[in-house]
Simulated scan of single mutants.
Amino acid sequence: MRFVQRSDEVPEDFEGRAKDEFDDVLAHRNDPTKTKSFTFKTYKRPEIKQLLQDMFHGKCAYCETFYSASQPMDVEHYRPKGAVSEDDDHDGYWWLAMKWDNLLPSCIDCNRKRKQITPVGDVRQVALIQNGTPEFSQSKVLASGKKDSFPITETGERIFDAPTGAKDNLIALSSPGLLKEEPLLLNPCNDRPAAHLTHHFTSVTDGVDGARPAPVSFMLPAKLADGEGDIYRGDDDLSLKGAVSIHVYGLNRLNLVQARTELLRRLEFLKSVIVQLHALADEIEEATTTEAHISTLLAKSTQKIRALADQITEEIAVMARDDAPYASMVQAWRATFKSELAG
């Protein structure tokens, strides 16, 4: 998950449609003869879907997977519109169903409650750092996917009904009282996911016994900085917001871990090629000869080798662009690689 600046541009008729639907759902709720739940339509409009798709480059707002090639995009409500699974007395944030900044694009695995094979074991950040690569052979089927989930902190104040002026305000989060809920789910347009989530991955390096462990990509809650977000601070100073988001969105479901890991292993291969090319160029530069033509040939060879390494480095930069899949993981890996080179 990565931060995305929400676009302020919405279709010209969106505000009118949203206000009309607000009136319709309010009338539906006040009519005792209405026994079926209200059918919301404004958020499903094609132009809204296109805006969300463009804003997130065709990727899921939560897991950064491209969904367009294999599945339809779900227009997801950050605050659920019809129910809240953590509170049976809550009818859902119906007054936010047509609000622009409550809408996000999602893949079906992050949005719908589904049973997913998920690695288990001690995956706390501290344990992973101390013990190295976790055991991913152990796994179980867990129900993940957001659906109607919207957990808040123990000190948060749940909002149960539309505040005054809700109809005329297209921006959900500016509604009075919503921030007092202290939500435990990350919103990529309002939070800085990098402050609450961290990518754990191991490089392909020789171990003590000569083994070369395969790298694995796993999402973990990040350590919160001192004095930052104390209401979301959990054990070992890890972010509760990150931990809950990982669980609810299913950010460590097996197929997602495998997809990120496949990309990670490509990155590790490219890194090894870059390192070897620069090492070869260094050896050539250190070679000495009295033959002028050989010296010229060696110089040209060195230039070509370093140019090839630079091309591979540029390819990695492309893989780290915001419109690429799992960009936040690639950006984190790239930062680690730069640190290794600097060292």
Rank of each mutant, 00 (worst) to 15 (best):
F3S: 00
Q5A: 14
D13I: 06
V25Q: 05
A27W: 05
H28D: 08
N30Y: 03
T33Q: 14
K34D: 04
S37F: 04
T39E: 15
F40A: 04
T42D: 00
T42S: 06
Y43V: 10
K44F: 00
P46G: 05
E47I: 01
K49F: 02
Q50R: 14
M55E: 15
F56N: 01
C60L: 05
Y67Q: 00
S68M: 08
Q71F: 11
E76R: 07
H77R: 05
H77D: 06
K81I: 02
K81F: 02
G82Q: 14
D88N: 09
D91P: 15
Y93T: 07
L96S: 10
A97S: 14
M98N: 11
M98S: 13
L103Y: 08
L104C: 01
L104P: 00
P105T: 06
D109G: 02
D109Y: 13
K113A: 14
R114G: 03
V126W: 02
A127W: 08
T133N: 07
K140A: 10
S144W: 00
S149Q: 10
F150D: 01
P151K: 06
T155A: 15
E157L: 12
R158W: 02
R158Q: 07
A162K: 04
A162L: 09
G165C: 08
K167D: 11
N169D: 13
A172E: 01
L185I: 09
N187F: 12
A195N: 13
H196V: 05
T198I: 13
F201T: 13
S203W: 10
T205G: 10
G207Q: 12
G210S: 09
A214C: 03
V216M: 11
F218W: 11
M219G: 04
G227T: 08
D230Y: 01
I231R: 15
R233S: 03
G234C: 08
A243Q: 11
Y249W: 08
Y249D: 00
N252P: 07
L254V: 01
L256G: 03
T261Y: 04
R266V: 09
R266M: 10
F269A: 13
K271N: 12
I274L: 09
Q276F: 04
A281H: 08
I284C: 10
I284V: 15
E285H: 05
A287E: 12
T290A: 14
S295G: 15
L298S: 06
L298W: 04
R306H: 09
A307K: 15
D310F: 05
Q311R: 13
E314I: 03
A320T: 13
Y326I: 03
A327V: 06
S328I: 01
V330R: 04
A332F: 09
A332Q: 14
W333N: 03
A335K: 14
T336Q: 14
F337L: 15
F337P: 06
